[in-house]
Amino acid sequence: MEETLASAEAAQIPQQRGASLLETAARYAEERHWEVVPGAWLETTDGVPHCSCGDPACAAPGAHPAREDWAAQATGSVSTVRRMWQARPAASILLPTGRAFDALDVPETAGFLALARMERMELALGPVTLAPDRRMRFFVLPGAAAKLADLVRGVGWSPSSLDLTALGEGGYVAAPPTRYGTRGAVLWARRPTPANRWLPDAEELVPSLAYACGRDR
């Protein structure tokens, strides 16, 4: 496997500070041509971190959209990105799916099993995130969400039997170094590089992901 969990932790770039979040968001827009949008952020009261949304039961503190029109606010303009994070320096970094990429979403255990299998097969892979909710998101070409069910059936599985979903239009991925409350930060299990700028099609990854999810049941 190219990067184990330990090396994924080392790939956390950079630590979550205001300037680092701003520069990282700008780099995603400039270098990868990804649209980005600022999300919720963490606030601290009496030493206890909580989500800026104010919901004490927030399921993803500091790692979800901050406003209803978030999708319309997403932009690939570096200057606009900088202005957004200058206004909200602690805002999380969200990447809308269904635009430059979709994301195949699987449990962490299945994700690492599939990643190892795909690397042995020498498949061309895109970036992969590892989040504190113990989920991995594999970046693939847009359109994966619409055809995932048929692809899963095509390799002999019922879609409802596997914990394998796709994030497409209307969805988002929280990008490193966004933090989830006290649970830690989103990491790159496979970081963006010039070599993986061209993303794979979902049909190339689904067989391995479905196999791994089937074993992880």
Rank of each mutant, 00 (worst) to 15 (best):
A72L: 13
S79A: 14
A74S: 07
I93P: 00
F101C: 07
E119C: 06
A74T: 03
S79Y: 02
L104V: 12
R117K: 13
A90H: 12
A110E: 00
E68P: 00
G126C: 05
L125V: 02
R83T: 09
W70Y: 05
G126L: 07
T80D: 14
Q86G: 02
A91C: 12
G98K: 07
R117V: 07
E108D: 14
T97Y: 04
T75W: 10
R99G: 08
A90Y: 09
F112Q: 05
E108F: 06
M118S: 02
F112H: 10
P107I: 13
T97V: 12
W85S: 00
R99W: 12
I93M: 02
W70G: 00
L123T: 05
A103R: 09
E108S: 12
L125Y: 09
T97C: 10
E108A: 10
A91Q: 03
T109D: 11
A100F: 11
Q86D: 14
T75C: 03
A66K: 07
V106Q: 05
V106K: 04
E119I: 03
E68F: 08
S77F: 01
A90P: 00
E68S: 11
A66G: 09
V106F: 05
T80C: 06
A114C: 12
W85C: 01
G111I: 03
W85K: 00
A87N: 11
M84P: 01
V81D: 00
R82N: 00
P96D: 07
R67G: 01
S79W: 09
G111K: 03
E108M: 08
A87F: 06
A110G: 10
P96L: 05
Q86R: 13
R120M: 09
